[in-house]
């Protein structure tokens, strides 16, 4: 599912702050600096997130033509994560532990040795696996100041807010009954009334309103 095709489920955000002068060049440069970089077996990182092309998650060389669609800025937020199945890891770790202890004629591993062995086993298994890739589309209507993000999980929103604010130096405000009302252009009296609203009790007994 996403901005270009598939089912349509998204979260909406309002961008707070002004677009800087020459923002297209500036944004393109900052996006490229935060473009997705693949995980490697040698490094310790468990996961990594970065921008990719909305049309091809494997394309992380991002220029103007891949980012700007007229008044929209479109990107994919790609997150790769090593996901070694727990049973597989346990089995390989137990085997490595046995070999290690047998070689040294000992019965138990020290804490530090255990950690080092875990890292060795992880690297060995990662070399045989591919990281799990997740891509979420983002479409920013630059004129309206509205971002649509094709994922509704709060955890994904946290990752988006972090990378978006780091890349564009602008804040995201999530859609909600309050923010939707504010965007409607309430008068100051209406806004003040909204801010002190109390819930209505609809199931209360009343003698008014019904047809007599």
């Amino acid at each position: 599912m996403g901005a270009l095709k598939g089912s349509i489920s998204f979260s909406k955000f309002y961008v707070r702050g002004e677009l800087p002068d020459g923002f297209r060049d500036r944004f393109a440069e900052r996006i490229q600096l935060r473009a997705f970089r693949p995980l490697t077996v040698e490094e310790d990182a468990e996961q990594r997130a970065g921008w990719c092309s909305i049309e091809n998650p494997l394309d992380c060389e991002l220029d103007h033509g891949k980012i700007f669609f007229n008044s929209y800025l479109n990107l994919g937020l790609r997150t790769d994560r090593w996901q070694v199945p727990s049973a597989l890891f346990k089995a390989h770790f137990a085997e490595a532990e046995r070999e290690h202890l047998a070689k040294r004629g000992r019965e138990k591993l020290g804490r530090r040795e255990k950690e080092e062995l875990r890292a060795v086993v992880s690297r060995k298994l990662r070399a045989q696996l591919m990281p799990v890739m997740k891509v979420v589309d983002l479409s920013w209507n630059l004129e309206a100041g509205v971002v649509r993000f094709w994922n509704q999980s709060p955890r994904a929103h946290e990752g988006l807010a972090e990378l978006f604010e780091d890349t564009f130096e602008l804040d995201l405000v999530p859609e909600s009954p309050y923010t939707a009302a504010r965007e409607l252009g309430l008068t100051s009296e209406q806004l003040a009334a909204f801010e002190v609203l109390k819930p209505t009790v609809f199931h209360a007994e009343s003698t008014l309103g019904g047809a007599r």
Binding site: A3, L4, K5, S7, I8, S9, F10, S11, K12, E55, F69, N70, Y72, N74, S139, N141, Q152, P174, E175, S176, P177, T179, A180
Partner: peptide, 29 residues
């Protein structure tokens, strides 16, 4: 419609008639 989040999910839009990916995007938006 998720009332608490004021969010729309599983939106069915009228059929998109354009073929090219760019045009489909503008039509969907």
């Amino acid at each position: 419609f998720n009332a608490d989040a004021f969010a729309l999910a599983g939106v069915k839009i009228p059929s998109v008639v354009k073929d090219a990916a760019d045009e489909q995007f503008y039509e969907r938006m």
